[in-house]
Simulated assay, not measured.
Amino acid sequence: MPGQRLARGVARLLVSLDHAVLTEFVPARGLRVDLISLGPKGELWIVECKSSRADFACDRKWQGYLDWCDRYFWAVDGDFPAGLLPDDTGLILADPYGAEIRRMAPEARLAGARRNRLMRDFARAAALRLQRLQDPEMLSAGVF
């Protein structure tokens, strides 16, 4: 999938910036972001990967993600018409092997209670994913 290839490159970039990264994260019911990252100072970034003009045009939920992060980015490849993307969001140019920030997203700090909830949900999701990798038989035993 093209979006997953972009997500891989973006994840590599974010890890190089000392962020912990989760893909396909649900910050709230009805929302699922391509990537969310937790930075070393507790900052939360969301990145949506768009592989084509049609993929971007179909996305009706992205503005709902703004309330769930400190910075919001789009990740696209070099062929994407970046002029379509809102100027008040971040822009990351990516491929499957890496990425670079072309436009830093403006910061809109989360409220403390929401940040705490997201950090707790992030930690739980990461721990459960790790446990599933370490003990895949738990899935067939109905534990997860």
Rank of each mutant, 00 (worst) to 15 (best):
M119E: 15
L130C: 06
V26E: 11
V47Q: 03
R103P: 12
L85M: 06
F80C: 08
P96L: 14
A127D: 09
D67V: 05
L118R: 00
L110Q: 06
P40Q: 05
S37N: 07
A54C: 01
L31M: 13
R60A: 10
W45V: 03
D121C: 09
W62R: 07
R117W: 10
K41H: 12
D59N: 08
W74P: 01
R124E: 10
G98V: 07
M119L: 15
R124S: 07
R102H: 10
R53F: 09
R117F: 07
L35K: 02
W68V: 01
R102V: 15
R71S: 07
D88R: 10
M119Q: 15
D67R: 15
R53V: 14
L35R: 05
A82I: 14
D34Y: 04
L35D: 03
M119I: 15
F25T: 04
A108T: 06
R60D: 11
D70Y: 06
A82V: 15
V47I: 14
D95V: 07
D79T: 09
L31V: 05
L93W: 12
E107H: 05
S37F: 00
L84N: 07
D70R: 03
P40E: 05
G30N: 10
W45I: 01
A94I: 10
R32D: 00
D59Y: 08
V26K: 07
A75H: 00
R114I: 13
R53E: 14
W74R: 02
P40K: 09
R132Q: 10
W45N: 07
C69T: 02
D88C: 01
R109D: 04
A57H: 13
L38V: 07
K50G: 02
P106N: 07
R32Y: 14
I46Y: 02
Y97H: 13
V47P: 03
W74G: 00
D59E: 05
K41V: 08
M104R: 12
S52N: 12
D34A: 12
G39S: 06
L91F: 07
A125V: 10
R129G: 15
V26Q: 11
A127F: 08
L38Q: 01
D95C: 14
P96E: 13
I46K: 01
A125G: 04
R103N: 09
D88K: 08
M104G: 04
F25R: 06
D59K: 09
S51M: 08
W74A: 03
G30T: 05
V33D: 01
A111V: 06
R32T: 04
D95L: 12
R117D: 09
P81Y: 00
L128Y: 07
R124M: 13
A57C: 04
G64H: 12
I92P: 00
